[in-house]
Nucleic acid binder design. Structure first.
Lengths: 151, 151
DNA sequence: TATGACCTTGGAGTGCACTCCAGGCAAGCC
DNA sequence: GGCTTGCCTGGAGTGCACTCCAAGGTCATA
C-alpha cells in the first residue's frame, strides 16, 4: 500500500533549529475507503505503529476492527478520533486524562455533561498556555532585539 | 522584574478540573537584598530545592555563591536567570538546549550571534505552538457547543 | 513457491525531567 | 547537651510516554 514520502520517523530528534521549519507532513486520506492498515494510518497521522498499538492497549482507542487474519483495519471514524486525540495531546493533556475521556465516550450519551466539563477545563488550559506563550514571546523579543543591537 | 503571588509547590498533581484555576502562586522578591537561601528561592520561583540543585549540577545555572559554611546564596541576577529559564521551559525547549544557551552565555560576548539564532528559532517554535493551540481551540469549541446543544 | 515487506503479541527498555534517599554538617534554641 | 530545622552531597528511583525486541504469522509479487 505504499508509504510515501512523509517523514515516517524522521521526527526522531529535532534540534531547536529544525523544529520550527516543518511539522511532520501527513498524507491526505483517500476517499471512498474505510479500512486502512496500520502503516497507512502511520502515514496519515504521523504517529508510529508502536504508538497506535499502545494507544489501543491503554484504552485510548475504541475497538479497532480486524481482518480475517487478525490484522488491524482502521475506519475513517478511527482516523477522526486519532486526529482529535492528537489535538488534545498538543494541549499538553496527559494521556491518562484522554483515556478518561475515551471511557466517557464508551459509556454513551449520559456522560455528555461530564465530557463537556472536561473539554471546557481543557479549553481554559489552552487559553492559559496561549497567554503564557505570548508572555514568553515578549521576553524573547526583548532579548533578540538586544542581541541584534549589539551585533 | 516582579514575580508576584504564587504558592510553593502546590502544582503537584492537578486533575484537568483543577488545572485551569490558579497558576502556582509565588512570593514577591523582597527589595534591598541580594543573598537568598535555597528555600527562599523555592518560594520565589515555585521550583523545588531538588530542581534548583539539579539545574546547577547539569550546568543550567551560572555558579551560585556560597556562605562560609557552604550553603547556597542566590543573587537577584540568579533569580532573573531562573525566571528566564522558566519561561524557556514553558515553550517546551528541552533542558539540554537551555544548557547549551547557558554555555554560550558563559563563553562571553563573541557568542551573541549564535545566541540570537537560538532565540529566534525558539521564537518561531513559540509562534507555531500558538498557532497549533488556536487550531485546537477551534476543535474544542465545536465539540463543546455540540455537547451544550445536546444537554 | 519463495522472497521480503508487513503485521501480530507481551514484555522489556529508553529518555527526559525531575524526585528522593541516606548520611552528615551547621546553627538556633531550651 | 540535646533537639529541631535547614542545608549539603552523590547516586538511586520515579513517572510519563513512548519505543523496541523476539519470535512468529501474513501478504504481494517475481
Amino acid at each position: 500500500m505504499t508509504v510515501m514520502q512523509t517523514t515516517p520517523a524522521a521526527t526522531e530528534r529535532a534540534t531547536p533549529a529544525d523544529i520550527c521549519s516543518a511539522p511532520p507532513r501527513r498524507h491526505p486520506r483517500p476517499d471512498g475507503q474505510d479500512r486502512y492498515t496500520i502503516s497507512e494510518v502511520v502515514a496519515f497521522t504521523g504517529l508510529t505503529a508502536h504508538t497506535l498499538r499502545w494507544y489501543e492497549r491503554i484504552g485510548l482507542m475504541p475497538h479497532v476492527d480486524r481482518s480475517h487474519t487478525g490484522q488491524r483495519r482502521y475506519s475513517n471514524r478511527d482516523l477522526d478520533w486519532l486526529d482529535f486525540v492528537t489535538k488534545l495531546r498538543l494541549t499538553g493533556m496527559p494521556v491518562a486524562d484522554m483515556v478518561r475521556y475515551a471511557e466517557l465516550v464508551r459509556q454513551g450519551d449520559q456522560t455528555f455533561a461530564e465530557r463537556r466539563h472536561l473539554l471546557e477545563s481543557t479549553r481554559r488550559d489552552v487559553l492559559n498556555r496561549i497567554a503564557e506563550l505570548h508572555d514568553t514571546l515578549g521576553v524573547l523579543d526583548r532579548k533578540i532585539s538586544f542581541y541584534a543591537a549589539e551585533a
